[in-house]
Amino acid sequence: MEPFIRLTAVAAPLLTPNINTDVLIRVEPMIKVPKGKLGPYCFEAWRYLPDRSENPDFILNKPAYRSAKILLAGLNFGCGSSREPAVWALADMGFRCIIAPGFGDIFFNNCFQSGMLPIVMPVETVEKLAKLAQSQGDLAPDFTVDLERQVIVTPSGEDIAFRIDALKRRALLDGLDDIGVTLAAKAKIDAFQANDLAQRPWIYRY
């Protein structure tokens, strides 16, 4: 997995609450399009008009935000389906970090698996960041997200602290392969199953 250490980029504000993973990636491209090429299908229903031309009113189509790598999102971002391609689609579109007042629990977990940093911030903070992210013409300001220091640096240089669970933070910083880590302690799983088999034989032999 690609490590996440520090990122400086434009932040796009899209504060609609309850954006679900079906909106992030519809089921059809999720099945047909490989990881790495999902970008054009992210937010498909909102990004394009029915004739497939770009919807100029959609925030991520505006010139100022086309290079955004940070998404400022609303309540319960990524609710719904467990589809991990929702994270891949955002990543393929260029995003590496999402800042929101809350996330769908499964989506939140999936982010860490794909090198995407999800940051939970109070709604007032996200709204403040969204104001700071406003564009002037075709230009929007850069923010820095520093996972090492656990701060967001605003365009004016103010540090805003955030917190990521130590275990998840380490894994992102190091880009760990968690299967390798788990199998290094395979004896623990063996021991658990041997003991459990004696307690609950019906789980293992059925």
């Binding site: 991990e84 977990n109 999936n110 698996q113 299967i179 788990t182």
Partner: peptide, 11 residues
């Protein structure tokens, strides 16, 4: 998610 599915298969 998919990554967790693969982790469960392996471990």
């Amino acid at each position: 998610g998919r990554s967790e599915v693969i982790h469960v298969l392996a471990t």
